[in-house]
Amino acid sequence: MQNSHSGVNQLGGVFVNGRPLPDSTRQKIVELAHSGARPCDISRILQVSNGCVSKILGRYYETGSIRPRAIGGSKPRVATPEVVSKIAQYKRECPSIFAWEIRDRLLSEGVCTNDNIPSVSSINRVLRNLASEKQQMGADGMYDKLRMLNGQTGSWGTRPGWYPGTSVPGQPTQDGCQQQEGGGENTNSISSNGEDSDEAQMRLQLKRKLQRNRTSFTQEQIEALEKEFERTHYPDVFARERLAAKIDLPEARIQVWFSNRRAKWRREEKLRNQRRQASNTPSHIPISSSFSTSVYQPIPQPTTPVSSFTSGSMLGRTDTALTNTYSALPPMPSFTMANNLPMQPPVPSQTSSYSCMLPTSPSVNGRSYDTYTPPHMQTHMNSQPMGTSGTTSTGLISPGVSVPVQVPGSEPDMSQYWPRLQ
């Protein structure tokens, strides 16, 4: 039975679970980093996980050691009161100082060594604690504590007292930064006198190289990059290397530039699409467009005044059976039934097929058609009795279509119309 579990990581490298990497692998990681390889490249070359490479390099940059820390136990506290007071002093002298600059000053002034120097995250935590204590304490208590930490007896009751030896409130920041720059020169002199001055200088240079600022491109470089971006948004590694040799930039910087440029292009394309949609959409909808001609068919113009009344309900007709019959029939052209047409008796099958359309009241044959006459024609229609054979009435077949029909004066039988409509 094995005491430890061995495995293979996602890159194909072998590791022992819970145990640190061998010293030979750690040394190779540092050597590759000094030669300029990126952590992701080191991870692929040595088949070590990216997190492990970053952790080893980060500890090497901070402490200069590649040895693993002790497994188990607690780390001794490195942010001692003396170190905290120095950090507060540096922050007062130059409020814009960075944590890694404070760390360098602690090393250069001999406050800490490589073994007990606090990390950048520890210094940031100390600065946050100082800021929170400043908010919790009152103004007087804060000034007393700062005077105690600074070891001075001057008056701290006013704002300019934060910067000793100065009279203009805006000047101390520059003086403090100048003092810090002077301390940086002392850093070089002190570290050069040490035993491991060369190694420390190499480590600091490598650290500065990794902690780079934003790349500033010249106009020629920007023009070359934009020209390549117009050709393709995704250049391959050969195109990037050719462009890197042409404009004297690292291939990694060119790759990052193209990634950022593609993101910018997507944002601009989104804005262009929004403007295009806004320009195509009308600002207001016309009133006429809300009524579609496919839904509402136009009603033909009436030929006679009587045809303006298109349904039985508008003429005072309360018989719903006839109203439904007229509205359900398709529109037909106007025609006239003459008196000489043969009077065919209704076929029983045809009569039964339209039995649902006729009223059940037996008085329908005896009703006159003056009910369908509009009010303004009552006088004219009353002067001509319906009993004469020459009287013409208008029957409504569908809305908007008038059918003048000659009705025999002897017997106005409704059943004569249905064979004609089939």
Score class of each variant (00 low, 15 high):
40 C>R: 07
8 V>L: 12
12 G>L: 03
94 C>D: 14
18 G>H: 00
123 I>W: 03
39 P>H: 09
79 A>K: 04
80 T>V: 13
8 V>I: 10
44 R>Y: 10
15 F>M: 02
35 S>N: 11
74 S>D: 01
33 A>V: 07
94 C>E: 13
25 T>G: 04
144 D>C: 10
145 K>C: 12
57 L>I: 14
113 T>A: 08
124 N>F: 04
90 Y>G: 03
112 C>L: 10
131 A>D: 07
109 E>K: 11
116 N>A: 12
71 I>Q: 06
10 Q>G: 10
131 A>I: 13
70 A>N: 11
29 I>W: 00
15 F>A: 03
47 Q>H: 09
45 I>H: 10
78 V>F: 04
87 I>C: 15
103 R>H: 12
40 C>F: 05
128 R>G: 07
56 I>D: 02
73 G>P: 00
9 N>D: 02
106 L>G: 02
131 A>G: 12
148 M>F: 07
77 R>I: 05
6 S>Q: 07
106 L>S: 01
143 Y>C: 12
115 D>I: 11
117 I>L: 07
74 S>A: 01
94 C>Q: 14
66 I>H: 10
136 Q>C: 12
75 K>T: 07
82 E>Y: 06
15 F>T: 03
39 P>L: 13
87 I>M: 15
92 R>M: 13
23 D>R: 10
49 S>N: 03
85 S>M: 14
137 M>S: 09
135 Q>S: 12
64 G>E: 04
103 R>N: 06
29 I>Q: 03
122 S>R: 02
8 V>S: 04
73 G>F: 00
10 Q>Y: 05
32 L>M: 09
97 I>V: 05
102 I>K: 03
44 R>M: 06
62 E>Q: 08
14 V>A: 14
25 T>S: 11
127 L>V: 10
93 E>V: 12
52 C>L: 02
16 V>N: 09
127 L>F: 15
149 L>V: 10
80 T>F: 06
150 N>R: 12
62 E>Y: 05
87 I>P: 01
74 S>L: 01
120 V>Q: 03
86 K>D: 07
2 Q>F: 10
143 Y>E: 10
18 G>L: 01
89 Q>I: 12
2 Q>A: 13
45 I>N: 11
73 G>Y: 00
44 R>D: 04
138 G>D: 08
37 A>W: 12
20 P>I: 00
43 S>Y: 01
119 S>V: 03
13 G>K: 04
41 D>H: 14
63 T>S: 13
75 K>N: 05
141 G>P: 07
